[in-house]
Each structure stands twice: as structure tokens, then as C-alpha cells.
Design a protein around this nucleic acid. Structure first.
Lengths: 229, 229
DNA sequence: ATCTTTAAAGGTACTTTGTACTATTTATTT
DNA sequence: AAATAAATAGTACAAAGTACCTTTAAAGAT
């Protein structure tokens, strides 16, 4: 075979991002109203086309920065969507990423600009193309990852209570967790530093704030420790 | 933004396959000598370009069928490689897959045709482009998957002994496993059917052959059972 | 000022699972 | 017939997970 033949066909390449956030109400998903055809005005994921001078990871970061104003966002690529007719306007191969952001850091100005809105993961509108399937796969990938890596902290503010952390895991796994046992387990890992401040909003006694110690996690991991929830 | 601009750039899109096999010597990797430029004559993964009428999964199956003669091969897509200069001849975005095949099913004729060779995963030659990185990532993905899904059977013949299965897990995880405990654990899952035949090659007493019961696994899974090794 | 309430924090008893090791079985080989 | 080798079975202990209870701290009500 000649190079001419092998290197003949080319395709549009895109990234699509499932942006997760978390607040008192649970796990959420940032969707936007599409501002161009096809399917203009319908709800969709944040996405964009690959530029010639960047990798897919860089393209995803660029799209996320444009939409959230944030830099160095936690990102995981979890699948590529390549069905021949997934985008009726053109043949587009799309790398799907999920991103975790601290919902409080997200600027409300941008919501207006992009027609964006946070939706509960259990109740979001119909999406264009195969974006609904992407969301469901992202949730599966997120659940898997959250069992093996301490990524939950990417969704919480820097300081948080054990209750908030438990509530996050409860909303990721759609289940109730025993408060005492959850507490015992997470504290036994020695990855949280207790702060001398309490949250008194949710209880009279007050719950201590904690902070995730990333450095200690890296150290433990290099010594063979495996995070598991 | 106009469609013209958004849908402007296009790229070459490819698939690359890490083909795993297993025999008495351990976990192996099928590599081939590249028959065309660039890097003609060097070792590389099996790969190919995406055709306009197929999805990436279909492209990967096509490549694998061409190279192994087998159909319906177990495949997992685990990453996309998109660095700007990963292929010096052109900008190529490549979806990486790992495949699991029963090494005995692989035709030796094809080894000659493609200049292919099985290599131990712990000792394979230098590969072109980013293929070495792909192999290492594939191993990580395989190890993760093997913990959560009974995919090991894709690498074993239909009938196998507990010793063979243990040996497979030992070579995937590069560790020694206690024979009694391994046996107790795998049998407690009730996923293996014992056959009335024994292997007498490796022991005087003889070890029963077993068969993985896929149907029972599907049933258990739908009832909430989680495979875990 | 004391009592009540609330959730945090800490503790206990029990069950399940994992681990290390020992003993027995079976059929071949010497 | 005895020695053997690995399969198979069993056992005792350790660790982890689960369900549930008790105590504590501080706010708010009486």
C-alpha cells in the first residue's frame, strides 16, 4: 500500500465535556443552549473542535476555560464517539471528557453568556445527538473513578465537613451511607486535616471543617496505599 | 460563528490495537514489523486508518480480523492519542484499543504474513511513535478491568484448570497468589462449572477442568453481584 | 438558669472476608 | 508397595465492614 492511500481520508475531530458540580441539592451537570446550527436552541454539552496546534486534552481545557473562566480543571477522557451519523451535519469523531469543578467557583456571568444552566444528574433535559449517552457513560466512569481515587475533593470547596463529603458520595452513588461508619473509614485513611473551625449551620454542636491533604495522599500512594471507597 | 469556520479543520483518524495473549510462559503481546514508511521495518502495534463508513469500534474489529483471522474479538477502547507530532508523517489522532484473544486460536500463518511475533509483556522491543506508551497504558487498563470483570476467560481456552486461571492472574498482576485461597475465592463465586475431565500433565493427581458460565454471570450481575478479584 | 433538641463524634458487638498455614486425597512414578 | 507431587480441603487467626448505641457540645426554648 502506498502512503497516498493510507493517509487519504480525514475527519472532523471534536471534544465534548460533561461538567459536574456539587451543592446541597446534589450532583449537577452544566448544560448550555446551543447557539448555532444544527440543533440551534437545544440543550447540549459544552464542546468544540480540535485545533491543529493542540492535543485533545488541550482542546478540552480550552473549551472549559472559555466556558467556566477556570484554569487547570480536573479532566478525564472516558470514551470516543464515532458513529457515522452521530452529527447529521458532518462526520465528526468526538472525544468525551468529564470535568469536576467546585460549583462555587463558577461565575454566574458565564451562565448568561452561554445560556448555561446546572441540572441535577437525575433530571436533565433531552440533549442533542448522542450527548445523552455521553452523560450516562460519564456517570458510570465517574462512579468507577470515585471508588479508586480521591477525586471527590475536586467537587467540594477547600474546607468541608465530613457530612458534606458523605453527602457527595451519597449523591454520586445514589445511596444512603451510615454516618458513623463513613466517618470512621474516611478518617482512618489519615488524608484529612482537621481545622480549628466549625460549621454551625447544620448542627448545634457544630461540625469541624477538614481539608484534603494532597501531598500526604501522593506520599501514601507512592508507598503502595490504595484509596478505596 | 458560521458553520464554515467551525467545521473547517480535518484530521487523519486511526486505531491502534494492543493484542494480549496468554500461555504457559505468561502474558504476551502481539507486535508486527511495519511494512511501510515511515519507520518501515520497525516494531509496532497493529493499526489502521478509519474508513468513512465505519465507527472506530468497527475499524478496530476490522484491523483485528485482518491480522488474526478471528471474529468478535474482545475489545476495549482505553485512550485517544492526539499529540500534534506523534506521527511525524501527518497529524493523526489515534484511538487505542486492547484486545484479548485465546493464543491457541491465533493462526501461525498470519505470523509470517505480517511479520508478527508474540512478546512477553515484561520484555518487548522498542516501538515506533508513542506505541510504547500505549502498551503501558493498556496494561494499566487491563489490570483495572481484570479486577472488576471476569475478562480473564477471554485469554484462556474454553476448558481450563484452576491452576491456569491462577497463573493468568499471577502474570497480569506480577505477583504470587496462594493456591488454596485463590481456589476458595474463585469457586465461591459459583461462576465455574467443573467438567468430568482432568488435566494430568502438571500433577499426578490431576486437576479438574472448569468452564466459565457466562450466562450465570449475566444473571448474577443483573441481581447486583459484583465480580471482584 | 435549666431543659430540650440536634447532629457530631466516639464506641461496641457482631458478621463477613481475607490470610497464612496445615492436613488429606489421588494417582503416578520409582 | 512406598515415595511423590500437586490438587483439594480444612482451620485458626486477623482485618475489615456493618448495624447500632452512647456520649458530647452548643443552640434555642421554657
Amino acid at each position: 500500500m502506498a502512503i497516498d492511500f493510507l493517509y487519504f481520508n480525514t475527519y472532523h475531530v471534536a471534544v465534548d465535556c460533561i461538567i459536574f458540580g456539587f451543592d446541597e441539592e446534589g450532583l449537577k451537570l452544566l448544560l448550555c443552549k446551543r447557539s448555532f446550527d444544527p440543533e440551534k436552541g437545544k440543550w447540549s454539552l459544552m464542546g468544540g473542535f480540535l485545533n491543529p496546534e493542540e492535543s485533545l486534552d488541550q482542546a478540552a481545557q480550552r473549551v472549559l476555560t472559555r466556558i467556566t473562566g477556570l484554569k487547570d480543571i480536573y479532566l478525564e477522557q472516558f470514551d470516543v464517539f464515532s458513529d457515522v451519523s452521530r452529527d447529521p451535519a458532518a462526520r465528526v469523531v468526538s472525544a468525551a471528557y468529564y470535568a469536576l469543578i467546585k460549583i462555587g467557583d463558577y461565575s454566574n456571568d458565564l451562565i448568561a453568556e452561554f445560556g448555561a444552566k446546572w441540572w441535577p444528574v437525575s433530571q436533565y433535559p433531552e440533549l442533542i445527538f448522542d450527548h445523552g449517552q455521553m452523560v450516562e457513560e460519564a456517570l458510570v466512569a465517574l462512579r468507577l473513578k470515585a471508588k479508586q481515587e480521591p477525586i471527590g475533593f475536586e467537587l467540594l470547596p477547600q474546607f468541608f465537613t465530613i457530612r458534606q463529603l458523605r453527602s457527595l458520595y451519597e449523591s454520586i452513588y445514589q445511596t444512603q451511607l451510615d454516618p458513623g461508619n463513613f466517618r470512621k473509614k474516611i478518617l482512618s485513611m489519615k488524608l484529612l486535616d482537621q481545622l480549628p473551625i466549625k460549621d454551625k449551620e447544620n448542627s448545634k454542636r457544630g461540625a469541624y471543617y477538614y481539608e484534603f491533604n494532597q501531598q500526604r495522599y501522593e506520599r501514601f500512594k507512592s508507598q503502595g496505599f490504595l484509596f478505596e471507597m
